[in-house]
């Protein structure tokens, strides 16, 4: 059976930003991620561009290929159709926004090839 989605995508979930501010998941903006990453000692924000979206191993899964960061590292992730990603300047987006809205009451746009998602990498240790 498919892996359950984490509970924090449910509308109304309380998210703590890096500066301690609390926001609901549906109210998060691109700047919240950028500012939180700026003051994080461990995490660095990166942009991941959606290059391909293919069917996954099960009917309710998709394989999303991203091009990550300046080096354009190719990364594939298999997630449930309703898994939301945060797109720069747009907000939550999933491959099946209707399902995300139905399951999590989280308004979503359709995730498309070319969308640039917020992703995180570890800051390199010196």
């Amino acid at each position: 059976s498919p892996v359950a989605l984490p509970p924090f995508f449910m509308r109304g979930s309380i998210i703590q930003l890096a500066d301690g501010e609390l926001k609901r998941v549906e109210d998060l903006k691109t700047e919240d991620f950028i500012q939180s990453a700026e003051i994080s000692s461990e995490l660095k924000i990166d942009s991941s561009t959606v290059e391909r979206i293919d069917s996954g191993q099960s009917p309710n899964a998709v394989v999303i290929q991203f091009s990550v960061g300046e080096l354009k590292a190719q990364v594939c992730v298999e997630v449930l159709l309703e898994y939301p990603f945060f797109v720069f300047g747009q907000g939550w987006s999933s491959c099946c926004p209707d399902r995300t809205t139905q399951l999590f009451e989280l308004s979503c746009a359709k995730l498309c090839v070319g969308d640039v998602c917020v992703s995180l990498t570890l800051r390199s240790l010196r």
């Binding site: 995508f9 309380i14 998941v25 939180s36 991941s48 990364v75 992730v77 917020v118 995180l120």
Partner: peptide, 19 residues
């Protein structure tokens, strides 16, 4: 009410291992 850290919302993108 549970409070979740902001970074839990963003998937860490690590290279996929071949099966």
């Amino acid at each position: 009410v549970p409070v979740f850290p902001w970074h839990s919302l963003v998937p860490f993108l690590a290279p996929t291992q071949s099966d």
